[in-house]
Nucleic acid binder design. Structure first.
Length: 416
RNA sequence: GUGAGUGUAGCUCAGCCGGUUAGAGCAUCUGACUGUGGCUCAGAGGGUCGGGGGUUCGAAUCCCCUCACUCACCCCA
C-alpha cells in the first residue's frame, strides 16, 4: 500500500464517529448548563507560547513538539495542549474585562511527537474547559463536578477521581527542598530515570512505578504538609465542597502534573479499563499564568478530556447507525429519471431516500436495499407510472401497502 | 530514545520440519428466481505471502538487513 496515515495519526470513520458525536453532544449540553461558551483557537501558535507556559524542562517542550519554521523564518508549533493557546487568546482579547467568571470550552486536535502506543497518538483530540477570574475553591469543586457529569453522561463507569494540591510559588520551593533532602541519602536505591528526575523534577519521583523506587521513597514528606496557609485553606475548601456535592474522589498526594504552570489544585481521572495510558482527563489550577502572559493577575482553572481514551470505554451499542427511510428501485431508464425527481421531493420533507443509479436486476436492487438497511422499498415500473400507484414494502415486516404516487400519501405510507 | 512481539485476500486467520497453478471463513459481486431483499445452493472477482538480499534444483516456509504496525518503558489526555 502506497499511501497511509502518518505514524500515530488515525482516520476516524463510521461507525466509530457516532461515538465521537455522542460525546461531543453530551459535552456541549452540559457545558451549556454550566455557562461555558465555545471558543475555537488556532492549531498553530508561536513556539515561545508553549515554552513559556508549559516549561522549558518539561518533556513536552524538550522532545515532543512539532516545531518548524514558516516561510518567514518564524518558529511555529502545532499546539501540544490547549491551555497555553487559551491563555494567549484570553489576554489578547482582554477577555478578563468580561464579567467573572469567564468560562470557555473547546474541542480539537493536539499534537505531540511521541512513540505511539495504545490510547496514545501523535494527533489526539481533547475536550477542554477553562474557568477564569475566581480563586474560590467552590469553582474548583464545581468544575470537577461538571467533569464528572460529562464523563458519566457520556456513559463512562468505574472512574477514579484523584485530587491533590501542589502548592503555589510560595510553598512549593520549600517542599521541593524537603523532598530532596529526604531523597538525597537514598538516591542509590532509585532507578536511572529517578536519579535523573532528582535533578530535573524531583516531584516526579513520587509518581514512579518501579517497585524499588516505591520502597525507597517510603516515608517521604507529603506535599500537603508543606502547603502554605492560603494553599492549605484552599485545599481544605475543595475537599469540603467535593464532599458536599457528592463527587466521589480520593486524595493522592503523589499526583504529579507534567506542566509547569499548575498551582494549588491538581486532579486526574483514571480508568482501570484502559492499558497503561489510563488517564482519561486531567487538569488543575493555574493562577499565575495569565499574569505571566502579560495580563492582570487573573486566576484560572481548567481540564482536558482525552477523546481517544474515553471513546473505547463507551458501549458499542451507541454505534447503531440510522437507516434510509426509503429505497427506490426503478425498472427502466424512464423510471430511473422519475426516481431521481421523486427522491428529491421526498427529501424536501426530511426523509432519507436512496435510489438505485445503474441498471440492474430488481433482484439485485432489492439486495442492495436490504444491505443498506432501508426501512421501505418501492418499485417504479411502467405500470406504476401509468397508474400513478406504487406498493410500499416494509422491509422489516414484509408487509406491502398500495399508495398513490403523491408526496403526502407516500410520506404517510413510509412513516406508518 | 529503549525493549519485546507481529506482518499471507477488504476483514479474521490457516499454511511455516522447504516441493507443482497459495487456502478457508466472513465480506463483495453475479446467477438459480426475465418485477421483490434476508435463508439456501452454485459461481466469480480479489494476493508484489510487508520490502530487499542470501542459501537452495526449488523459499510464504530457512538466514541476514530493512520498513511498517502493535504493546510496554518513558511521558501524558
Amino acid at each position: 500500500m502506497k499511501y497511509k496515515t502518518l505514524k500515530g495519526l488515525q482516520d476516524i470513520l463510521p461507525p466509530d464517529i457516532l461515538i465521537w458525536q455522542h460525546i461531543e453532544t453530551i459535552s456541549r449540553d452540559i457545558f451549556k448548563i454550566y455557562g461555558y461558551q465555545e471558543i475555537r483557537l488556532p492549531i498553530l501558535e508561536s513556539t515561545d507560547i508553549f515554552i513559556r507556559s508549559i516549561g522549558e524542562t518539561s518533556d513536552i517542550v524538550e522532545k515532543e513538539m512539532y516545531t518548524f519554521q514558516d516561510k518567514g523564518g518564524r518558529s511555529i508549533t502545532l499546539r501540544p495542549e490547549g491551555t497555553a493557546s487559551f491563555v494567549r487568546a484570553y489576554v489578547e482579547h482582554h477577555l478578563y474585562n468580561n464579567a467573572v467568571p469567564q468560562k470557555y470550552y473547546y474541542m480539537g486536535p493536539m499534537f505531540r511527537y511521541e512513540r505511539p502506543q495504545a490510547y496514545r497518538y501523535r494527533q489526539f483530540y481533547q475536550i477542554g474547559a477553562e474557568a477564569m477570574g475566581i480563586e474560590d475553591p467552590k469553582l474548583d469543586a464545581e468544575l470537577i463536578s461538571m467533569l464528572a457529569r460529562i464523563l458519566n453522561g457520556a456513559g463512562l463507569e468505574n472512574l477514579n477521581f484523584e485530587i491533590t494540591s501542589i502548592g503555589c510559588k510560595h510553598c512549593r520551593p520549600a517542599y521541593k527542598n524537603a523532598l530532596k533532602n529526604f531523597l538525597q541519602s537514598k538516591l542509590n536505591g532509585f532507578c536511572g530515570d529517578c536519579q535523573r528526575r532528582f535533578e530535573i523534577n524531583p516531584l516526579r519521583i513520587l509518581d514512579c512505578k518501579v517497585p524499588d523506587c516505591i520502597a525507597s521513597r517510603h516515608g517521604s514528606p507529603p506535599v500537603i504538609d508543606y502547603l502554605c496557609e492560603e494553599c492549605k485553606g484552599h485545599f481544605d475548601g475543595l475537599k469540603h465542597y467535593l464532599k458536599m456535592l457528592r463527587v466521589p474522589h480520593t486524595i493522592n498526594p503523589n499526583l504529579v502534573r507534567g506542566l509547569d504552570y499548575y498551582t494549588k489544585t491538581a486532579f486526574e481521572v483514571t480508568s482501570e479499563s484502559l492499558g497503561s495510558q489510563k488517564a482519561v482527563a486531567a487538569g488543575g489550577r493555574y493562577d499565575g499564568l495569565v499574569n505571566e502572559f502579560g495580563g492582570p493577575p487573573a486566576p484560572g482553572i481548567g481540564f482536558a478530556i482525552g477523546m481517544e481514551r474515553i471513546v473505547p470505554l463507551i458501549k458499542d451499542s451507541l454505534k447503531k447507525s440510522e437507516y434510509p427511510d426509503l429505497f427506490i428501485c426503478p425498472i427502466g431508464p424512464e423510471e430511473s429519471e422519475e426516481a431521481l425527481i421523486l427522491a428529491e421531493q421526498l427529501r424536501e420533507n426530511g426523509l432519507w431516500i436512496e435510489i438505485n443509479y445503474d441498471k440492474s436486476s430488481l433482484k439485485s436492487q432489492m439486495r442492495k436495499a436490504g444491505r443498506l438497511g432501508a426501512r421501505n422499498v418501492i418499485v417504479l415500473g411502467e405500470d406504476e407510472l401509468k397508474k400513478r400507484e406504487v406498493v410500499v414494502k416494509d422491509m422489516m415486516s414484509g408487509t406491502e401497502v398500495k399508495t398513490s404516487i403523491d408526496i403526502q400519501e407516500l410520506i404517510k405510507a413510509i412513516k406508518a
